[in-house]
């Protein structure tokens, strides 16, 4: 009889251990998913302060145009954080229902870096200007006063972005023009995805070139009326 009780107790303990192991594994998985979701969705906190008017260059897929739109947003003081907040708000607009340029609601940017442009690389000369080695004898590099913004996109944003020449180009130009409208010192923008250069955003728009803020790309003309 005792042996039978001992056996029952033993198997009950084994069952409890297994149940506990399964429960802990599930809790661990849930916790990991919660942390990942938090990392993907948490917007950069705006510092306490007054909201200032910003200009978002909102894209419209139907017309292929960008329209400047004003919003009141509290921006951080640091230019890098300010640039990142601008892009976050821009993409958040596109994830709203009824958007004319619908994008999925993900946090688009991992980081934005602002770098001074060399003095002899005006953005109008070439959109593919890459850094030139500065004279090592000069202690302060000669700069044009303009800045290059390096926008490091998240791969989740790129992989979920709709594919197509127009829709991809509009997203990139919208980011470039919004940055320049609110931070005029930004003259060029380059894009990375997860810190690495990538050929295209979603199969079409070139991500290897530097986009100039003065670019007039995507000024569309419907030739229906002009046969």
């Amino acid at each position: 009889m005792n042996q039978r009780r001992q056996r029952i107790v033993f198997w009950c303990m084994i069952a409890c251990i297994l149940a506990m192991a399964v429960f802990l594994a599930m809790q661990r998985k849930r916790g990991r998913e919660r942390v990942q979701a938090l990392g993907n969705t948490t917007l950069l906190d705006a510092p306490p302060g007054n909201a200032t008017p910003i200009t978002l260059e909102l894209a419209n897929d139907a017309t292929g145009t960008l329209t400047p739109t004003t919003r009141d947003v509290a921006l951080p003081d640091a230019p890098n954080a300010r640039a990142r907040t601008l892009i976050d708000h821009l993409i958040a607009e596109y994830s709203q229902p009824g958007s004319a340029h619908p994008l999925s609601p993900t946090t688009p940017v991992a980081e934005v870096f602002l770098l001074p442009l060399p003095a002899d690389s005006p953005s109008s000369r070439s959109s593919r200007t890459i850094f030139r080695a500065t004279d090592p004898t000069t202690s302060i590099p000669d700069t044009s006063g303009g800045e290059l913004a390096v926008v490091d996109l998240r791969s989740a944003f790129a992989s979920e972005h709709p594919s197509g020449v127009e829709v991809e180009s509009l997203t990139l130009l919208s980011i470039v023009k919004t940055l320049h409208a609110n931070l005029p010192q930004i003259e060029q923008v380059r894009f990375l995805v997860d810190g690495q250069p990538r050929e295209t955003l979603a199969g079409h728009a070139d991500l290897l070139k530097a986009y100039t803020a003065s670019s007039n790309a995507h000024t569309e003309t419907d030739s229906d009326t002009n046969p």
């Binding site: 020449v165 127009e166 728009a205 070139d206 007039n216 419907d222």
Partner: peptide, 16 residues
């Protein structure tokens, strides 16, 4: 394309 009654949009873009 317009003469062939195909709606056409002309633009510029950066496409690899």
């Amino acid at each position: 394309l317009s003469r062939a009654s195909v709606p056409t949009i002309i633009s510029s873009a950066s496409v690899r």
